[in-house]
């Protein structure tokens, strides 16, 4: 279900809830699947007593991965050409995240129509935890 260039306009948005009350177990799942076993994400004792953080926290890449679901649900599967983010604040167990894509431009490159998007993910306090962009092929 790809997007149609002629139905898109700058300022269009798509928002999705990524997770409600993020569980430590989901962070463990991501550690196991991604292979990033940094104890900062799964080992409460190390993280509080040695690293000095209030609790374990999510991999930035878990937030990017969850935000990627919002994007592929919006632009369609196998349609992304670019996706990049900055991690602007940490994500903690218990957080609820919402992600938004905003159309910033529609263009054509060598006969291929493209949409450019701003990407932003916020937590339950309205703090931006991820900020970036994406580009996708559209029909």
């Amino acid at each position: 279900m790809a997007l149609k260039a002629n139905a898109l306009k700058v300022g269009d948005t798509h928002t999705a809830r990524l997770v409600e009350d993020l569980k430590r177990t989901q962070i463990v799942q991501y550690a196991g699947a991604s292979g990033d076993y940094n104890p900062l994400h799964t080992d409460e004792i190390f993280t509080t007593k040695v690293a000095g953080y209030p609790s374990v926290f999510a991999h930035g890449m878990l937030t990017m991965g969850m935000t990627g679901k919002m994007l592929t649900d919006y632009v369609g599967d196998a349609r992304l050409t670019k996706y990049g983010v900055r991690f602007t604040s940490q994500v903690w167990p218990g957080d609820t995240l919402d992600a938004t894509a905003t159309v910033t431009g529609v263009s054509e490159d060598g006969g291929q129509k493209l949409v450019d998007l701003d990407v932003s993910t916020v937590n339950q306090d309205g703090v931006v935890v991820l900020s970036g962009y994406a580009q996708a092929r559209v029909d």
Partner: peptide
């Protein structure tokens, strides 16, 4: 591996 990775980011897309 793809199935486990998709699960871990909360994406049930059957693709």
């Amino acid at each position: 591996h793809i199935l486990m990775f998709a699960r871990s980011v909360g994406d049930p897309n059957p693709i």
